[in-house]
Amino acid sequence: MKLIHLLILAATVLALAACNSNEDKAKTAGSASDNAPSNAQSVTDHGAKDKSQVGFQMAGGNIEEAMNVPKKAKIAIIEAFNEYMDAFNEENIDRYMKTISKKPEGFNYETEKSDVQAAFKEYDITRTAENTTIIQYDENNAQVFANLNTNLVQPSTGAKLERNGRQVTVFVKEDGKWLVTSVYFMMETSK
């Protein structure tokens, strides 16, 4: 599910008025800003045509760094991931969309732009990544694992929501730049 669905859940959980038609959900499923809104452990995976190519088992397991990443590529990929996170946190839509592939595998570029703009308008959202690790690499594709914390606040009501999870962000090299093409997210179960 995508960020907009997290926002809808937040609004519902916090007794806010929000809704989304099934048609809208179908059209907007699969975003670079995805988070799975659920108290149960769930996996959101959109993008890779062959899911077996994702670099770790979403249900658990050890995270191992890819050993074949050249130093220069590693720096560029981590910088691309950090830019993706920073641009989102700064709510800079133009900067954020520059981190997204023009032909993503996991979502629609224009829908992503529209949904993220709407989220920026309605909510203050901060995403923090820890344990950022390149887990798969070849010269045109890279997968970056991170533990993510998402904090959401609706300024108009003061409503708040916090979610933690694990994410693999898949990058593709496009015009010499590493850009997000799909995202896999697994929400941590609440205790």
Rank of each mutant, 00 (worst) to 15 (best):
M1H: 10
K2R: 14
K2D: 15
K2E: 14
L3N: 15
I4S: 12
L6C: 01
L7S: 11
I8H: 15
A10K: 05
A10D: 09
T12C: 11
A15V: 05
L16S: 14
A17R: 04
A17C: 07
A18G: 13
A18T: 07
A18C: 01
N22M: 09
A26M: 08
K27R: 08
S31H: 05
S31R: 10
S31N: 05
S31M: 09
A32C: 02
A32P: 13
N35S: 12
A36V: 05
A36Q: 14
S38V: 02
S42F: 07
D45P: 06
H46R: 00
A48P: 11
K49I: 04
D50F: 00
Q53S: 10
Q53M: 00
V54T: 10
V54N: 09
G55F: 01
F56I: 01
F56V: 00
A59Y: 01
G61N: 05
N62M: 00
N62C: 01
A66W: 00
A66H: 01
M67T: 05
M67Y: 00
N68I: 02
K72Y: 02
A73Q: 12
A76W: 02
F81E: 09
N82G: 09
F88D: 05
F88Q: 01
S101F: 03
S101L: 07
P104N: 02
P104F: 01
P104R: 03
E105C: 02
F107S: 05
Y109M: 04
Y109F: 12
E110Q: 15
E110G: 15
E112H: 01
E112M: 06
E112P: 04
S114K: 15
D115F: 03
D115A: 14
Q117S: 15
Q117K: 15
A118P: 11
A119G: 14
A119I: 11
K121N: 14
E122V: 15
Y123A: 11
D124M: 01
T126G: 03
T128P: 04
A129Q: 03
A129R: 10
E130T: 15
E130S: 15
N131Y: 03
T132M: 07
I135F: 07
Q136R: 15
Y137L: 09
Y137Q: 05
Y137E: 04
D138F: 10
D138H: 07
N140A: 12
N141M: 09
A142F: 04
A142N: 07
A142E: 02
Q143V: 08
Q143A: 11
V144H: 07
F145R: 09
F145H: 12
F145D: 08
N147V: 09
L148I: 13
N151G: 08
N151V: 00
L152K: 06
L152Y: 06
L152H: 05
V153E: 10
P155R: 03
A159C: 03
A159T: 08
K160L: 07
R163C: 03
N164P: 02
G165D: 06
G165F: 02
G165A: 04
T169R: 02
T169N: 08
V170K: 12
K173D: 07
K173Y: 11
E174Q: 13
D175W: 02
D175K: 14
K177D: 15
W178Y: 11
V180K: 09
T181W: 04
V183A: 12
V183K: 13
V183F: 12
Y184Q: 13
F185A: 10
M187C: 03
E188N: 14
T189V: 08
S190T: 13
S190H: 14
S190D: 15
K191F: 08
